[in-house]
């Protein structure tokens, strides 16, 4: 049923698509995080902005991906931006919610103690708030990476220079082997990203790893909340 010969003949092409897939996803994840971090800081410092930011990002996420990809084509034609703009927009809701939740998770008494001991605003942000917000931020990165990798696959609909593994799914609708390569490749990348960020999350917070059960339960729950919110 599976044409192993085709796979053997197309190893360079498959690897090339894997690189493209990761490239598309990585760009969106990095740019999306930068934008979201700014929006989240704004939301934390100026609370009334939060419902507006989260609401808009939420609406963007409800737009079906096929529709969003296609709607940019008449405006900016086919370029890297045609893929990246929708991908970045989709990450916003996941990131912003998690980064804000990260800052909110810093206990009030820790902030009070920091202020009382004479931290300046910037020192407090850098030395206290950021490190304590990291677990939830990485949890957001983890969810966003899985979601983005999935959406890159769909960008294959835009044509042969897009899609990463999605290219194989859309190229020949009747050739099962090629479709399977695209699907399995996409799934493998998503699982890999999820595992990678899971490890990173624990590496970055040695202080919470000591409290393994408690912290695992917490991060598990917040990741689930983020997914549910999505």
């Amino acid at each position: 049923m599976i044409d192993w010969g085709w796979i053997a003949d197309h190893v360079p092409a498959i690897l090339g698509r894997a690189v493209q897939h990761l490239e598309f996803a990585a760009i969106a994840l990095v740019v999306g995080f930068a934008i979201s971090f700014g929006l989240a800081l704004l939301s934390v410092r100026y609370r009334p902005a939060y419902p507006v930011v989260a609401g808009l990002a939420g609406i963007l996420f409800t737009i079906p991906s096929l529709a969003l990809y296609s709607s940019f084509v008449p405006v900016i034609g086919l370029s890297l931006l045609t893929v990246e703009i929708p991908l970045v927009l989709y990450t916003l809701v996941i990131y912003v919610r998690n980064i804000v939740a990260g800052f909110d998770s810093v206990p009030a008494e820790v902030l009070e103690a920091a202020d009382g001991m004479g931290y300046t605003r910037m020192q407090r942000l850098r030395a206290v708030e950021l490190p304590l917000a990291v677990p939830l931020m990485v949890a957001g990165l983890r969810v966003a990476s899985v979601s983005t990798i999935g959406l890159v696959t769909i960008s294959g609909i835009l044509g042969s220079s897009f899609g990463g593994f999605g290219f194989f799914i859309f190229e020949r609708p009747n050739f099962a082997t090629e479709i399977l390569v695209g699907a399995v490749g996409s799934i493998a990348l998503a699982l890999l990203a999820d595992a990678l960020f899971g490890v990173l999350q624990r590496r970055l917070t040695p202080w919470s790893r000591l409290n393994v059960e408690l912290e695992m339960a917490k991060t598990g729950r917040s990741a689930a909340q983020a997914t549910a919110a999505v």
Partner: peptide, 10 residues
């Protein structure tokens, strides 16, 4: 303070 407010990451 009552809740101490030690930095949990330090």
């Amino acid at each position: 303070i009552q809740q101490v407010g030690l930095f949990p990451h330090q």
